[in-house]
Simulated assay, not measured.
Amino acid sequence: MPTGLRYDVVVIGAGIIGAACADALTSDPAVRVAVVDRGPVSGGTTGAGEGNLLVSDKLPGPELDLALAGIRLWRELAEQLGAQALEYEPKGGLVVASEAQALGALRELAEGQRKAGVAAEWVPAERLGELEPQLAPDLAGGVHYPQDAQVQPARAAASLLRRARDTGRVDLLTRTDVIGLDRGRVLTDRHGTLHCDTVVNAAGTWGGEVAALAGSTLPVRPRRGFVLVTEPLPPLVRHKVYAADYVADVASGSADLQSSAVVEGTAAGPVLIGATRERVGFDRRLSVPALARLAAQATALFPALASVRAIRAYRGFRPYLPDHLPAIGRDAVRSWLFHACGHEGAGVGLAPATGLLIAQLVRGERPFLDPAPFDPARFAHPQQEAQP
Rank of each mutant, 00 (worst) to 15 (best):
V362N: 07
D370R: 04
L350F: 10
P373C: 07
L369E: 07
G355E: 10
V348P: 14
R363I: 00
G364R: 15
R366N: 07
R366H: 15
G364T: 09
T354Q: 03
D370V: 00
L361Q: 15
R363Y: 00
F374V: 09
D370T: 12
T354K: 01
A359I: 03
A353I: 01
I358D: 04
V362W: 05
V362R: 14
P373Q: 05
L357I: 00
D370M: 09
L361Y: 08
F374K: 08
G349L: 13
A372V: 11
A353S: 05
A372N: 09
A377L: 07
P376N: 14
F368S: 14
D375E: 10
G364P: 12
P376L: 15
A353N: 04
E365G: 03
L357T: 02
P371N: 07
F374Y: 14
A359T: 05
Q360Y: 03
A351W: 13
P367D: 00
P367L: 01
G355M: 14
P371A: 04
A359H: 07
F368W: 11
D375V: 09
A359Y: 02
P373V: 11
F368Q: 12
Q360R: 02
A372R: 11
L356W: 03
R366D: 11
L356A: 08
A372C: 04
E365Q: 15
L357D: 03
A353R: 04
Q360M: 04
D370P: 13
L356G: 05
L369Y: 02
L361H: 06
V348K: 12
L350C: 10
P352L: 11
A372K: 11
T354C: 02
V348C: 13
V362A: 15
V348G: 03
P352Q: 13
R363M: 02
I358E: 00
A353Q: 02
P352I: 12
D375P: 12
G349T: 15
F374G: 08
P371E: 06
F374Q: 07
G364I: 10
L356S: 05
R363F: 01
G364Y: 09
L361F: 03
F368M: 12
L350P: 14
G364K: 10
G364F: 12
P376S: 15
V348Q: 09
P367Y: 00
A372H: 09
A353M: 08
P352S: 12
L361V: 06
F368A: 11
P373I: 10
A372G: 04
V348W: 11
I358Q: 00
A377M: 04
E365R: 12
D375Y: 08
F368L: 14
P371Q: 02
A351L: 14
D370E: 03
